[in-house]
Design a protein around this nucleic acid. Structure first.
Lengths: 340, 340
DNA sequence: CTGAAAGCGCTAACAC
DNA sequence: GTGTTAGCGCTTTCAG
């Protein structure tokens, strides 16, 4: 457009209301300390002039902002989205706003957002990352911006974290398969370089070992999407009866959904011939063709816990009993693994 | 923790490097105007001291920030998430960062984020909202913060927007059903108070009228999730042959997926007895039990277009040829509507 | 309860 | 190429 908008600042409001700048500021920050009459005049001037408080000036003076950052690898992932829900609700109660940033799993972008938020002087950060970033967060923390690591347990006691016990989740899934009678169990998923995947496999192995008799076949498969499940299932259907697993632990629900669909369509009974358990309990698991049993991580609670931890570090609430919160996921049994 | 971190500012860096503040600032903003030797000393001081530029000061001085806001009703919606992808990539190219905020469909939260971002002096906003907010955006624009309305066509020429022609999408879906021989078509979805839903129905009606012979039954159903599709399908299965539609246009894919699954399981042939077309082309459409035909809105392009429009309003790029961009969605035919 | 004034950290003139 | 300096808009002592 090109024509400049005359800036309306606290000074203009003061002039219009016939008071001093200080009084306007008081009105904005401590409304109770301003006489009712002037308050009304000021409010009216604000409305008439369309005054919007300039955060840069405010923050510069205050020395800190009133927002927190939430950095995730993928906003569209229902897991992170649900956490965000809890985070925002709780943050709002504490008078804080949440800015979300999407690293897209790209370390460079994650890094630049970390910088950006630190430059912006956010009060704190919630960081979900598949990478090892404790050192980075420690440096940032050292400069005055605290953070909570979300989704992986921090190794340093100085770094608060909220995570899920994936070893336990993997154990629960496979233990359940063993309990319903499966003996030849397959683990579908990858890559093991992802901590969560490795942990789930670890738990699965533990359950196998404990059973004494069951066996575990690892079917490495990526990416962890529905189509991959279809492919693996097709391969399984092609096997001779004896070589086919009678129980499958899919490292996430997308794989599980793909597996179940193709197996069932291909004439392999689910759960009669092959029982399947997924992980994450996304919405589609419950509504898939054969409803999929799944390991359910805590959702809303998780976000609330993360922000509560951050608030306590900020000194807004009493200090946390424990700086590493680890949630144990539950098993949700549905038809894909119900043999009665 | 409680112990204060001694702030490291541009002044401390200058002192440590033995240069003046101005030179450090130049180094930060116009690196080419600083001698190589001092540049090295400054860089070293920055690293050693862990200097982080304070955005509040910078922004206060500059008068504007270097970020843009993207406000969405629901980050986890793959549609908005994919847009975000394009938005962030393009914004980064232009040296801008993107802050995402989640209104959760709550008008109050949307409003407070609008305020927040305006106070933060973002360069511009991308706003996706189911509500009517043109007036609000006009006021904000009047104070100097431009915006692009995403997902609905703005009525004012002064308000840039990027949207999808849902009337056309609805028309294409039903026209396709008619073309493959359907005569008794059902529209499944709601509520009509949502603009997009109403538009899709409008397009559907147009196609019906044009056919001359086909009929349209409106089956109002909410919410637009898989489970609702299951419910509607169950009702349809219970109908006598003649009263059952031979073609269904589901207002979104979730409904479509639910419909297809329950119909097929319930012994109603898809697409032989009932053809189904969904809308949105989410990932699950392609991978559902009977792959679902769908109307596919542009995804990445959409985000790129939105930000390009914003950049042009900001004067970063040549003025846009047209301030309202309307994309026409495509039809993707899959098995749920393939009668050869 | 109200006003005056200092200064938060940074950048961009402007002089040198 | 480099240093000096004047504020950007706001909040908050501190007097009155």
């Amino acid at each position: 457009m090109g024509f400049e908008v005359p800036r309306v600042g606290i000074r203009e409001v003061a002039a219009a209301a016939g008071v001093s700048m200080g009084t306007v500021s008081h009105f904005l920050n401590h409304p109770d300390r301003v006489s009712e009459e002037k308050a009304k005049r000021i409010q009216e001037a604000i409305d008439r002039l369309g005054f919007v408080r300039n955060n840069a000036g405010r923050q510069l003076r205050l020395g800190h902002s009133t927002t927190i950052a939430y950095i995730v690898p993928d906003v569209s992932n229902p897991f992170f989205a649900t956490i965000a829900e809890g985070v925002e609700r709780r943050a709002a109660q504490a008078g804080l706003s949440v800015f979300v940033a999407n690293s897209g799993g790209d370390p460079a972008r994650e890094d630049s957002y970390l910088d950006l938020f630190e430059e912006h002087g956010v009060r704190g950060m919630l960081v979900a990352s598949p990478r090892a970033i404790e050192d980075r967060l420690a440096a940032i923390r050292g400069r005055g911006t605290p953070s909570v690591l979300v989704g992986q347990r921090a190794s340093s006691p100085a770094q608060p974290s909220v995570s899920i016990d994936d070893v336990s989740g993997g154990y629960t899934a496979v233990r359940h398969l063993v309990d319903i009678g499966c003996q030849q169990i397959a683990f579908v998923g990858g890559p093991l370089s992802i901590r969560q995947v490795a942990d789930r496999l670890q738990g699965a192995s533990d359950a196998i070992r404990e059973s004494g008799s069951a066996t575990l076949e690892i079917i490495a498969s990526e990416p962890r999407v529905i189509a991959t499940g279809h492919k693996v299932a097709a391969e399984l259907i092609g096997r001779t009866q004896g070589r086919r697993p009678d129980g499958i632990f899919a490292v996430n629900d997308l794989l599980g959904i793909g597996l179940v669909q193709t197996l069932a369509t291909g004439g392999v009974g689910v759960p009669e011939e092959v029982a399947v358990v997924g992980y994450d309990d996304i919405e589609y698991a419950e509504n898939s063709f054969v409803p999929l049993s799944s390991i359910r991580p805590p959702h809303e609670d998780f976000g609330v816990a993360a922000i509560d931890l951050l608030l306590s570090v900020l000194g807004e609430t009493p200090p946390p009993p424990e700086s590493h919160l680890v949630f144990t996921p539950d098993l949700v049994v549905r038809r894909s693994s119900s043999r009665s």
